[in-house]
């Protein structure tokens, strides 16, 4: 083992250099060669007799639009899958599907992905037209935009931003990471692991907000509030019924204090202002 080894010959040295350079080039070009295949789809389902619609989806960009008296749920979107060849990618995308099921008054739209394509296929986008009077529960990952739904809306995301326009009953949003923007008359319960939250409250309802980031709340009705702000950075309150500038926490009851405004911003700034509603 410890015997003196003969010197490396020039040819051997060249071979070693070649091998090392080849290895370095391969290392620098760690990559994958393949194709994407896309398949579009559209379908519908009957909503008669149902009360709640669940959308349990893989990661996607989801747009949900409510219309007052619809009796059908329509959806359109596209699947994208990967393959070593173009045909293989399209074949994989065709194996994916959305399944509509009902049980009692609950209907659910969810994805069916065979195990061999599960981690190489994504729902590129999905547009859903639904009934505005029905409760909706959305579970998934990715950005969600909801409009025109008056009833209860729940959004539960592993990550992604949420924007909701409308709503009169209750909005419950939970996202691991993402911004939340709401313009609603409904009661609001928002949690975001990290992200900004903006709420335009068009009516006097309870607002509970928990995030790590900046919070902006614009209120239309400010005569009956229980303000409870904690863990904030800078606090700016410019309501018709209360003015305040500070940091950390702020607690104040206005009027009968029946509508709770509870904000936890994890060190982010909090700004409360007046919402100017357009003339009817």
């Amino acid at each position: 083992m410890s015997a003196v080894q003969p010197p490396i010959r020039p040819r051997t040295r060249s071979l070693i250099s070649l091998v090392v350079v080849a290895g370095a080039v391969a290392a620098m070009s760690a990559c994958v060669f393949g194709f994407r295949g896309e398949v579009e789809f559209a379908d519908e389902a009957n909503l008669v007799g149902l009360d709640t619609v669940q959308l349990q989806l893989p990661a996607t960009e989801l747009v949900v639009t409510g219309e007052g008296a619809r009796t059908f749920l329509d959806w359109q979107g596209s699947w994208v899958s990967l393959g070593g060849t173009g045909n293989d990618a399209v074949t994989s995308a065709r194996k994916a599907s959305l399944i509509w099921e009902t049980w009692g008054a609950v209907g659910r739209l969810s994805a069916e992905l065979p195990v061999e394509i599960r981690d190489i296929t994504s729902l590129d986008h999905l547009d859903v037209q639904t009934a505005g009077y029905m409760a909706h529960e959305i579970i998934g990952t990715g950005d969600v935009f909801v409009s025109g739904i008056d009833a209860y809306v729940s959004v539960d995301l592993d990550g992604g931003s949420v924007e909701i326009l409308g709503g009169t009953e209750q909005l419950r949003i939970s996202t691991a990471r993402g911004d939340v923007q709401l313009s609603t008359s409904a009661a609001v319960n928002v949690y975001s692991g990290i992200g900004t939250v903006t709420v335009n409250a068009e009516a006097g309802r309870d607002l509970i907000i928990d995030t790590v980031g900046t919070v902006t709340v614009n209120l239309a009705d400010v005569d009956d509030l229980d303000l409870d702000i904690e863990g904030a950075g800078e606090i700016v309150v410019q309501l018709d019924t209360a003015k305040h500038v500070g940091a950390g926490s702020y607690r104040r009851a206005i009027g009968a204090a029946t509508h709770t405004v509870q904000i936890r911003s994890g060190g982010g700034g909090v700004e409360l202002g007046m919402l100017v509603l357009p003339e009817p």
């Binding site: 391969a26 290392a27 070009s29 760690a30 990559c31 994958v32 060669f33 393949g34 899958s81 990967l82 393959g83 070593g84 060849t85 293989d88 990618a89 994989s92 599960r118 981690d119 190489i120």
Partner: peptide, 11 residues
């Protein structure tokens, strides 16, 4: 995951 027949260079 990566699909079948997709050549991969790994380090």
């Amino acid at each position: 995951a990566l699909p079948r027949y997709a050549a991969e260079l790994e380090l």
